[in-house]
Structures are given as C-alpha cells and as structure tokens.
Design a protein around this nucleic acid. Structure first.
Lengths: 220, 220
DNA sequence: ACCTGAACACCGTTCAAGT
DNA sequence: ACCTGAACACCGTTCAAGT
C-alpha cells in the first residue's frame, strides 16, 4: 500500500483498477473498502471522484461500451455485417468482464458511446430500407435484443463463475435423464442439447431477426 | 410483531412474504433482518428453512415461473400461439415482480417448472416441422431470447423503480435534442422513438424470430 | 482542494444457548 | 426440532479533522 502523492487520483484510473479488481476477485469484491487499498488510497477517497457506487458502476459500463465500439468497423458497407460486428463486439466486451457487465448492462448509460451505438443501428436499418416509425420500432427490437442477450450472457457467466460448484457445469446432463413419458419432446432432442453453445445461439437469434428485418424492408 | 407458535414457519410462507416485502419496499429491502419481523420471527429463523440467501432467491424464482406456467393454455393447437402465450405469461410474471425477477431471472432453476417450459417449447418447434439438431438449436435461440428479454425487462423495471429520479423518465427526450450533424440517423427517427413501448418490442422481436423459424421449417 | 479516520446504520452467516 | 440472541466479518456513506 504505497502512499501516493495527492491529486494523482483520477476517474479514469479508478475505473481501470475497479475493472481489474472485479475481474480478479469477482463483482462482490468490487467495494470501496477494497478499491481504496488497490489504489494506494483510503477507501473513502474514491467518493471524492464518484458521488456514490452507482455512479462508479455507470462509468465502468460506459468504458466497456466505449471499448466495444472502438472495435466495430463502421466503414463496412454491408448493413447486416455492420450490425453483426457491433453485436459481436458488445458480446465480447461484456463476456470478458461478466461480473461487472452483469451490474451495468441494464442501465441506460446516456453517454457518448450509447448515442453512437444507436446512430449506428438506425443508420444500418435505414440502409436496409426502413424509415420513420418502422425504423424506430425495429431499432428498439434489434438494439434491445442485442442488449438483452448480452446482459443475459454476462449474468449467466457471472453467476456461472460464482456458483459453478453448486449448480454444476453440465446442466444439460439433467435433461438427458428426464423421464421420457412425461417429457417426450425433450427426450427427442436431448442428445443434441449439449452440442449447442451460447455464442452460436446469440448469432442464430440475431440472424433470425435480421432475416425478418430484411423481409419486412423488401417484401417479396 | 406478534409471536407465533413454533413449527408454523414453512418455505412456502417465507417465499410468499418475501415476495410481498420485495414488492412493497424494493429488492434491497429483501433481507433476513427485515424478513424475520415480517414473519413474526427472529431474522435468523429463516436460515433454518433455507441454507442461505441464494437458496431463498432460487425458490422465489421457481415460484414465479410456476405461476407463469399455470397461465399458459397448453391445449392451444397453434404452435406459434402456444409459444407467444408462454412468452407473455413469463413476461407478465416477471414484470409484476421486477425487483425479485431481476435477481433470479438468469439462474438456471433446474426444477419441475423449468422442465415443463422446455418441453412446451420443443413440442411447439417439432410441430412447426423442426427436428433433432435443428430443433435443439432453435429451442435455445427461442427460449434464451424469451428469458433474456424477460430478464432484461425485469431489470430495467427494477432499476427504473429504484433510480427513476436520477435517470429521469423521458430518456427519449435526450435523443430528440442531439445535434443533427453528428447524429443524422437518430434525428431522422427521433420523433418516433417515444411512441414505441417495450411490450410492443418484446412481441415484435419474438414474432420476427418465429417468422424466421417458420421460414426455416418450411422453406419456400 | 484533496484525503484520512472514525462513526453510523446497515448486511449475511455462525453458533452457543434456550424451550 | 425449532427458534433466539449475541457475535463476527463485512458493507456504503457521512462528516469532522488534517495537510
């Protein structure tokens, strides 16, 4: 706990160290009392830069989204690829920091990074041929699906890391041994349930929605 | 805090009162220390029926899903309607108890109610014409989308109730005033953004996916 | 202006003791 | 067998005091 010179603490550094702490020891370790020492400072010093814990979490979320956005190729001419690129980048950023992501994914961040995300999606949909009300409506369906899936995955990951021992890894195994007379449909596909991983499902769900977007934009 | 006779405390009653407490005072009020008095019992007495708080939350989640399932018309012959009915019932159950739902939605509950849900969805997909690996894969896409959206909405609701003052209700208002030169696409549809509500989006996103399911099951 | 240290009002969980 | 009460090891946040 080397003491540091006064005035050298910044919001940026706090966010960075907070991510490290959460990554290393879990979201429940992300407390002011641990964060202080990790920064070489008293626990309450952080409160001089963030009004409360919620404001800190919001800043962390913004940072995550910022990083995801920086990886998106905004010059990609194909609108579907642009949306998929954004979706994958978001997923990657959140799954990399699942414990923090779970805490912030559902917050409206209301910051630069979020506005740019919205702009990107609406632009893609307009290119696809949707405008006005239809574009607004579809934007919410697409954006919220990406966000919902991303948040969901982050949560599952975070919980998975925390209670893996209790819940067990192979949940699909339980489905295989269910009584066939009461669960005939499950039995039919049980052997395939463990093959599918969540990343594939995320891609599939999104592709399904974009298929439908395309159909509605340019009806046959 | 009328004392109660010994041996009258049950898991069922604890779950019921826990839901009431959370509903009334928020998820952060769902503590053993408040739950005890609400049950007319010492705070630690609850720990005789649930190993820890996580086990209590799991039981609450199971109860929510159970209730949702009881409202689904499983005899409905149209597979699309059956899935939509399940989705709406889940949404309703979770949005009714957003603060608790947010805490439990991402847990694999691994209980009776969950198995029946899976059985229902796979049965619907088989009726649609999907089998084996394709059915398993699509089941995950559909089920996880319902779950992700439901969890997401519950979270948004819960956060909304908790930090409504700070975040403000009319987030869409901020989008209307964004500089048009930097966000031209947003500006194009800004006036329509506030029209769409989340329930419509949930329905839309699901219909989009089911459209695509139908297309893949019976290709043109 | 920025940071510290003590204090306040909480948590979940354990455990010896009561009935 | 079931419940209580005290105790332990934590939280976020406030606030007077230091530099």
């Amino acid at each position: 706990m080397a003491k540091r010179e006064r005035g050298t603490l910044s919001r940026a550094e706090i966010v960075k160290v907070a991510l490290e702490v959460a990554e290393a020891d879990g979201a429940e370790a992300l407390t002011f009392r641990r964060l202080g020492p990790a920064l070489g400072v008293a626990p309450t010093a952080v409160l001089r830069h963030f009004r409360d814990k919620d404001e800190l979490l919001l800043a962390i979320g913004a940072q995550l989204l910022e990083h995801a956005l920086s990886e998106v190729d905004t010059d990609e001419p194909d609108w579907r690829k642009r949306i998929m690129s954004l979706a994958r980048a978001s997923r990657r950023a959140f799954v990399t920091h699942p414990r923090v992501a779970a805490l912030v994914a559902t917050r409206t961040l209301r910051q630069e990074a979020e506005f740019r995300t919205v702009e990107l999606i609406i632009g893609a949909l307009e290119q696809a041929g949707l405008h006005g009300r239809a574009a607004a409506s579809m934007y919410r369906a697409v954006a919220d699906t990406i966000l919902a899936w991303t948040a969901f995955e982050a949560n599952v990951h975070a919980v998975g890391l925390d209670v893996m021992d209790r819940d067990g890894l192979a949940w699909t195994r339980e489905y295989v041994v269910l009584p066939a007379d009461r669960y005939p449909h499950i039995r039919n596909v049980a052997e395939h349930l463990s093959d599918v991983n969540r990343e594939d499902q995320f891609e599939l769900a999104l592709e399904l929605i974009l298929d439908a977007v395309e159909m509605r934009a340019k009806p046959i």
